[in-house]
Amino acid sequence: MSYLLRRTGFYLLTAWIAITINFLLPRLIPGDPVMSLINRAQGQLSTQAIQSLYVLFGLNKDESIFVQYGHYWAQLLHGDLGLSFAFFPTPVASVIADSLPWTLALVGITTLASFLLGTALGVYAGWRRGSWLDLVIPVTTFLSSVPYFWLGLIAIALFAGVNGIFPSSGGYEPGLVPGWDPDFLLSAVQHSLLPAVTILLSSMSGWILSMRNMMVTVAAEDYVTVAHAKGLSERRVMVSYAARNALLPSVSGFALSLGLVVGGTLLVEIVFSYPGLGFELFQAVGAKDYPLMQGIFLIITLSVLAANFVADLAYLVLDPRTRREG
């Protein structure tokens, strides 16, 4: 229990540091966000307008940095991440809220599917070493070594376009109103299928390989021989003795990849013009939209931390040796 508390404390501290850096960053880079907005307005802003912009972005030069820090926290706790430049005057929070579900659905589901599928294949490939399943490995490794955007472009060229079955961009048919009605959902699934399959193809081999190799290592352990000698069924030995132990290293890898889900797969979303967080970040960088970038970074950092925390918890549950007594 004290271990859990210590871990929680550690993550809270890390989160605080991340948030603070996020506060300091725009104040450290030369040419603050307001300057870039002024440049965009091409000198048509009055001094009062400039001053009010500074206040609006929390960069009021009349306030000390500590007061600014206080305001920053107060805003953050209200869920206020400032206003976006690129989509002025939409609040950053609502821009993120619009794109986050798309990323979570697409990348989240595919990451999970890739992990489950890859791990299952790896378990079988490792258990029946030398079977036809071993042939799957070079194929998936090849697919994952192809640069992602290339795979995406090939997929678009083959399956999308004028005569294609799948749409080549966007998250849903233009003209549909997002909502929980069948037309929209069908369209959303249709739009996400191609990016999902390409992500799956390029990310699965990692899971297969690591799981297969761990299975081969664990299968040589004495307790697996003991399990065989006990006359347990082949399935029970494979699942409960070999795979159960071989899974441990993959779990932390999976948690880390869950953390990266929120950042989206930048390339996927750009190649498929998918309205997710990664695409938003790409646009934000292009438009020098500091508040939006800041907001997205914050969300990414916090979700990586959360995923790590979940990984720690999962390890605690799965591996009794990490539980410290007393």
């Binding site: 004495d222 307790y223 003991v226 000698a229």
Partner: peptide, 18 residues
């Protein structure tokens, strides 16, 4: 195991740690 059981060499590794 029902007719012949075995006690193995590695006392440390014969039990599954998890």
């Amino acid at each position: 195991w029902a007719q012949t059981s075995i006690v193995f060499q590695g006392a440390m590794n014969s039990l599954n740690p998890v």
